[in-house]
Write a protein that binds this DNA or RNA. Structure first.
Lengths: 199, 199
DNA sequence: AATTACTCATGATCTGGATTAAGAAATAAA
DNA sequence: TTTATTTCTTAATCCAGATCATGAGTAATT
């Protein structure tokens, strides 16, 4: 009960469910421990699950032909992660999803998700809401990429997601923000220097 | 009946509805004619509707403080458009949405959408599906921006959306792809020149 | 504890694409 | 049809941010 409360608290932010519904929802998930550096999604493999992070940190990324990697999304406690495109269309993955720390997740199977949605409109509503919000979020990210400079994107990320900055490696953050590791390092250092001078 | 068939065909791609349900769905929309250069969404105004384009072309864009504008999305026949973030959270718009041609749209009111969803789970399913797909699409766009060069993004757009290229002005396409008008012009001309040489 | 592999910092150099400028074409308005 | 406005082209110059190169700190692995 206590263990399942995180995901139940989460769903209750969106829809009002009773104890029985909470229990049905809870049992649809499988709890899994993932060690640091372990992959939960890999290119060319099926993506049977989406994951709710109970504790830990993950990184989803793609690797180009030239071998450069680009972070598509992060997830820490209370966030979801998967190769969403592959999961939704039940195709082979094109991304890696890897644990940045020893982590604990709740895995939800695609088929199980469909069953939940059919079984109870509230569950459908819930998944609809998080998809809608996800869409709005991704669109904001597209706009950031179009309108902001590298430095502005970094500052903006710092303001919006201070918790993430402390838990993800710098190279991963750089590739999420669409800049090189070296450049992000330089931006950070620039800031530190300024602070020193401002004393 | 014949007139309403576009949106009904559209929803039937996602959920199976009978004639009565089709009729309910149909009457939720208001048909509106929009002249070229007319705005249907403007910053600081409420966004009561999302729009399904029956015929025509639209462009959603943001304008930065420096006065540069950036295309967030296009829509032609059979696509949806609005300031999605503002619509979803029912806040004031931050974008412009303008008609690129004389157009005809079906407007769906936010409150009406909520009523439809409550009234019939199929409608909820429908909106859920298009949100999920929208999310997957936006994520692919983020990945394109991270991994591809300006020229690759242009080529990719050409392949995926040949119909759009003929109907949207070049400056709008450039700002959608995240490059300057001049640079897109150069890319296009480069290609033409190559073709000439290849004869 | 030593070796190996990641991760971050910093400088030097280079380049994709922006900016500026100035016309030319094409559309719309008169 | 003329004038005004919008859109597209081409060339010259410039710069944000990438790449390359090197070293140093830090964490895994033996």
């Amino acid at each position: 009960m206590a263990e399942g409360s995180a995901i139940i608290d989460y769903i209750r932010r969106f829809v009002d469910i009773n104890e029985e519904e909470a229990s049905v929802f809870n049992t649809a998930f499988k709890k899994i421990f993932i060690k640091k550096r372990q992959f939960i999604v890999q290119p060319d493999f099926p993506v049977p699950n989406r994951y709710y992070v109970l504790q830990g940190a993950f990184r989803a990324y793609v690797v180009t032909e030239e071998g450069h990697d680009h972070t598509v999304s992060f997830a820490i406690d209370d966030w979801w992660i998967t190769d969403y495109n592959a999961y939704l269309y039940q195709q082979k993955a094109t991304m890696f999803v890897v644990a940045l720390e020893d982590s604990m997740v709740l895995a939800l199977d695609f088929t199980k998700e469909q069953e939940l949605k059919i079984q109870n409109p509230k569950f459908e509503t819930f998944f609809c809401r998080i998809a809608e919000r996800g869409l709005a979020y991704q669109q904001r990210r597209v706009i950031s990429n179009l309108t902001m400079t590298a430095e502005e994107r970094y500052q903006d990320f710092l303001n919006r997601y201070p918790l993430f900055v402390q838990r993800v490696p710098q190279y991963a953050l750089a590739s999420f923000l669409g800049m090189s590791t070296e450049y992000l390092s330089r931006l950070r250092n620039k800031r530190v220097t300024k602070t020193k001078n401002n004393i």
